[in-house]
Simulated scan of single mutants.
Amino acid sequence: MDLLQLRYFQAVARYEHMSRAAEELRVAQPSLSRTIARLEADLGTTLFDRRGRRIRLNEYGAMFLRHVDRALSELDDGRRALLDARDTGLGRVGVASETLLTITHLLGSFRAAYPRADVRLHQSTAEEMDRQLRAGEVDFCVASQPLTGANLDSVELAREEVLLAVPRGHWLDGRESVTIPEIAHEPFVTTRPGHWQRALLDRMFASEGLTPLLSCEGDEPGASQDMISAGLGIGLIPAISRRVGTESHVPVAWVHMVAPDCHRVLTLVWNRDTYLSDAALKFREFTTSRPFMTHRLPDPRRGRAPRRPS
């Protein structure tokens, strides 16, 4: 049993698919299959259930994977510690966020304060973030949804209202607020499942026993405001985008949602059991020692929403 076998096993266990694992590892699939077979022979037990071309991690494989993840994580931490000790800089810090707009100014300020830090940025879904933290691919996630993996610590950075953006000239243009039932038949521009905007939209509609009508699903949340301004639908946009959109003259109108919990909570999340470089420690201190945003949440109960004209 060697490190290469363990790396290969970890990738196959993650995807439960030989072709995808081989593509990530950049090896031929037959070679990968032979390596996994040799590992199973060394261990004296099968790690996957095979049915035709489909493979599934069995109970022995799941048990072994937990130990492999810990062992490889320790080795990766040791390698990073050596590189940081040898480096004259502060080392590397990896950060993942669902939307890059959220942390653009934060990272810019951090780089200005610590120019010797090597900052690596990733755009990831909540599911990807959980995997990246476990695998040690990133040090921190700026998450808009709860991450519930084991050994994770977090601190709340900010809460901000989420507004409804509508095209100029829309019947809601000029309205102060609106309820979910009033917009039940309006087409929505939103993200695919896995992003926080989609989770919030589905949750708010479900609380009213409704399902949102979708006109566009995408993987780039930052493009939603432009699509809304083009008349492709309406959508939920965080308050920070209202400020940025106003500065860039994106033509949309903003409406408050009369709905409970129509806000976004941003948290900084990290794995307490992984090594953090000096750059990562500085980043955590920098991020948590100052206000992340200044947007306040208004009382959603204020005022009564006027009815939609018939």
Rank of each mutant, 00 (worst) to 15 (best):
I55M: 12
H67L: 06
D261A: 12
A13F: 07
T211N: 07
A239C: 00
R50S: 13
R70M: 08
G222W: 03
D278M: 08
A71M: 04
Q197F: 07
V95A: 01
R14F: 04
G245L: 09
E59S: 14
D278L: 10
D2N: 06
T45C: 14
G233E: 00
C262K: 08
G94I: 08
M227S: 04
C141L: 09
T102R: 09
S109P: 06
L25I: 01
A117C: 11
L232W: 05
R308K: 15
A305V: 07
S241N: 11
V189F: 01
H170Q: 02
L82F: 11
L100V: 14
S207A: 15
T267K: 12
V95G: 05
A21D: 09
D87S: 15
P187V: 08
V155W: 06
P187E: 00
L107C: 11
L147R: 11
F283Q: 08
A230E: 02
C216S: 14
V95I: 15
D130L: 11
T148D: 15
R198I: 02
A239Q: 03
Y8C: 04
I228G: 02
L75M: 08
S154A: 15
F140K: 02
F283W: 04
S215R: 04
P115M: 15
D77I: 03
R131Y: 02
A96M: 03
E186T: 07
E156H: 10
M18E: 11
R14D: 05
Q225M: 15
R243A: 13
S31H: 14
E40M: 06
Y275L: 03
M204H: 12
N151I: 01
E137S: 04
A21S: 09
D173F: 06
G136I: 00
P251W: 04
R66K: 13
A22Y: 09
R26W: 12
L268Q: 13
L106E: 04
G209K: 00
R308C: 05
V138N: 01
E127G: 15
A113C: 08
S310L: 12
R86L: 13
A112G: 12
A22W: 01
H105R: 13
Q225W: 07
L90D: 13
F64R: 04
E247F: 13
E176Y: 14
D69F: 05
Q29G: 10
G108N: 12
I103Q: 02
V155M: 11
R290F: 00
T294N: 14
P187D: 02
L157H: 03
T246W: 14
G209V: 00
R26A: 14
D226K: 14
Y114G: 06
N271I: 02
T191K: 06
R120W: 02
R7L: 10
D77P: 01
G78Q: 09
A112C: 10
G91W: 01
A150K: 13
G52V: 08
L47Y: 00
R111N: 09
L276P: 00
E161N: 12
S215E: 05
V162D: 13
